[in-house]
Design a protein around this nucleic acid. Structure first.
Length: 607
RNA sequence: GCCCUCGUAGCUCAAUGGAUAGAGCGCCAGCCUUCUAAGCUGUCGGUUGUGGGUUCGAUCCCCGCCGAGGGCACCA
């Protein structure tokens, strides 16, 4: 936002270096640690060090020389328009902005940009974010929620940063676990169907737990129990074979129950604000993946050991010419000719490249699959896809419970829907306590937004690589560094603006603010936070880290809350000051909304 | 055995080569007759696991050690 000033200063420093025989050094710009004023700074340590290394030392230790350079540059630069004053301190050159001009420029830019403020120019690249890969016929638990929340936020961030973005979901709709449910449903519950999308989905998940128990070998089994269990096992195996052969009856059962799961999944994705563009079903990449195997054998990438009773494998390290083991060897096709996860991921990747023409591919997948994905990318490279260089595994730590790992098979999970319902109830209780005047018809909507805001933020404010132990009270906290804290900043800004409008004010009057008054520390801090947003969007997108935005949203809200508390807006001393501050409130509200939107969080107008 | 991630305040986490390592929670003390107290202000709290190295400068980069978690061909 201050490119013009920065470049002008940079040019002056360059000239200074040439005149004084100092080797040119790339300058590192950073904000000045906040001291009640506002500006940018540049350090001279690197330059002093380079000078010494080039044998042009002026006989001073680097830190002293850096200080000296800062002093000299300060005198050399002279006055710069819109920079109010310059100081040299401890090897840094600090340039302070002329606040009235900069404040007006910043607020004007935000109000012009609106919901697009902070968005980057088009990158000319198409990126696909693959997330939301739950198995069908199972439950959508809090671990899936982390995946989906992270993926959706990342998709919003890269899109906002300037990438054309496609969101992809890859449900695991086939496999032994799925068949287990179909078998048990068919055997024990055929024809039944609970009412309600979520009730039905959870009911299916319970069937899975029950079926797993029936099929599991127990200690001290009686011969009769063993026979029964083995009978079940044979039925399940037969059902899988019939599915594989395309048996219409089994396929119909599978499709019907699958649709129940997908209905629930779509409902949950809707709640989380995730709009999936492309659905890949595991069952649909199975056949294409088999064809790939032959191609890879023909091209001598894969090794066919089936003749000797083995499988089709890829010796990845060997093919890449690596001497140290890194990607190791993996199986592409079982000895019985059936495909594996890796096989399907290859087929899927090819479809992404050839059908959707993506340049960049992001996989939001549990950290435990790191090796698998590195292997996938390595094989894609061997296969000749140059996009493999731009495949990225966004690995995130898994979510466990205080009592240990979650297990869908054992029914030891915390369901997303349960947490969501609890979140809403807790928000409703807080509304009853703090805002009893809120109309009844408004409460459900606010509870939805704030409850999900709390949960979503708790998932995003931790770096992806951290494991999370899920504690309901922590995830649904409304105080401190939380979603509701940030939403509340939005609500308070809205509240001021609402009152202003009710008193006959219009937003048009705020469009071109003049900051003629001496700005308080709180106003400056708030404006400074606002200016950081566009650069942080780019950083978050480059690093694939929604947490960057999550941290920022809190800092911004924090600056607003402090401002709100300390600085009167509608009661400002003068009309001009009131207008300027209202513009600032309007801009702050906009940026809070933009940042929250990138996190997949909606701010309510009241709470 | 090999590979990956991590180790920062009592707890949960930021800071990815720069100025005095920051927040939240918890504890303690203040602030609602004023735009929403889901808030604000203040206090307490640190040998950044450990030993070296690189650098003008290291929580950050490199090496060793200690500790925690995860992964390593016919599961996904």
């Amino acid at each position: 936002m201050f490119d013009v000033e920065q470049k002008a200063i940079q040019a002056r420093i360059s000239a200074f270096c040439q005149q004084n025989d100092i080797p040119e050094t790339e300058l590192k710009w950073s904000p000045i640690p906040f001291s009640g004023e506002w500006g940018i700074s540049v350090s001279f340590f690197q330059m002093a060090s380079n000078e010494a290394k080039a044998g042009k030392s002026k006989g001073l230790p680097v830190p002293q020389r850096a200080s000296q350079m800062a002093e000299q540059v300060k005198d050399y630069i002279g006055a710069i328009p819109t920079i109010s004053h310059i100081e040299a301190v401890k090897g840094y050159l600090n340039l302070y902005f002329s606040t009235p001009e900069f404040a007006a420029r910043v607020i004007g830019t935000v109000l012009d940009g609106g919901s697009r403020f902070g968005a980057g120019a088009s990158k000319g690249e198409r990126v696909m974010v693959e997330y939301a890969q739950p198995n069908t016929h199972h439950s959508f638990h809090i671990g899936h929620a982390r995946n989906t929340i992270l993926g959706e936020s990342l998709a919003r961030i890269v899109e906002f940063a300037g990438f054309e973005t496609l969101r992809a979901s890859y449900p695991g709709d086939i496999g032994l676990g799925v068949i287990t449910v179909v078998w048990a449903y068919n055997k024990f519950y055929k024809g039944q169907e609970p009412a309600g999308v979520h009730e039905r989905g959870q009911w299916l998940a319970n069937i899975y737990v029950e079926a797993t128990r029936l099929l599991e070998k127990k200690d001290n089994e009686s011969p009769a129990e063993t026979a029964l269990r083995e009978g079940y096992e044979a039925e399940r195996r037969e059902m899988y074979q019939r599915w594989d052969a395309g048996d219409p009856e089994v396929r119909q059962l599978w499709l019907t129950t699958r649709e129940w799961s997908l209905e629930e999944l779509r409902d949950i994705l809707g709640m989380l604000g995730a709009k999936i563009d492309v659905w890949f079903f595991e069952s649909e990449v199975d056949e294409p993946s088999k064809a790939i195997v032959q191609e890879l054998i023909d091209r001598d990438i894969a090794t066919d050991e089936r003749a000797s009773g083995g499988a089709v494998i890829v010796k990845i390290d060997e093919k890449l010419g690596l001497t140290k083991e890194k990607y190791r060897t993996n199986v592409l096709l079982r000895s019985d000719g059936t495909t594996l996860y890796l096989t399907k991921d290859l087929a899927l990747a090819r479809e992404k490249f050839e059908v959707y023409h993506i340049d960049r591919s992001i996989y939001v997948v549990d950290v435990r699959q790191s090796l698998h994905l590195q292997q996938t990318f390595a094989i894609l490279k061997l296969w000749g896809f140059k996009q493999s260089e731009k495949c990225y595994h966004l690995a995130y730590g898994y979510v466990s419970l205080p009592e240990g790992a979650m297990s869908a098979r054992r029914g030891r999970v915390v369901l997303f829907k349960e947490v969501y319902d609890e979140a809403k109830n807790r928000v409703l209780a807080v509304i009853e306590e703090k805002n009893p005047g809120m109309p009844a018809e408004e409460r459900a909507g606010v509870a939805h937004k704030v409850g999900l805001g709390a949960l979503t933020y708790s998932m995003l404010c931790v770096d992806n690589n951290k494991d999370i132990v899920f504690e309901l009270d922590d995830a649904l906290s409304f105080d401190g560094r939380t979603g509701p804290y940030i939403q509340n900043a939005y609500v308070r800004a809205n509240s001021i603006l609402k009152k202003y409008r009710n008193e006959g004010g219009s937003d048009a009057e705020l469009a071109n603010p003049l900051f003629a008054h001496t700005l308080s520390m709180h106003e400056i801090e708030l404006i400074e936070q606002i200016t950081r947003f566009p650069a942080l969007v780019q950083q978050a997108a480059n690093e694939y880290r929604p947490m960057v935005i999550a941290m920022y949203a809190y800092d911004l809200a924090n600056a607003f809350h402090s401002f709100y508390h300390a600085v009167p807006v509608l009661q400002a001393e003068s009309e001009a000051m009131k207008k300027a501050r209202l513009s600032l409130v309007l801009a702050a509200k906009q940026v809070v909304a933009n940042a929250l939107d990138l996190l997949g969080i909606t701010a309510p107008e009241v709470m």
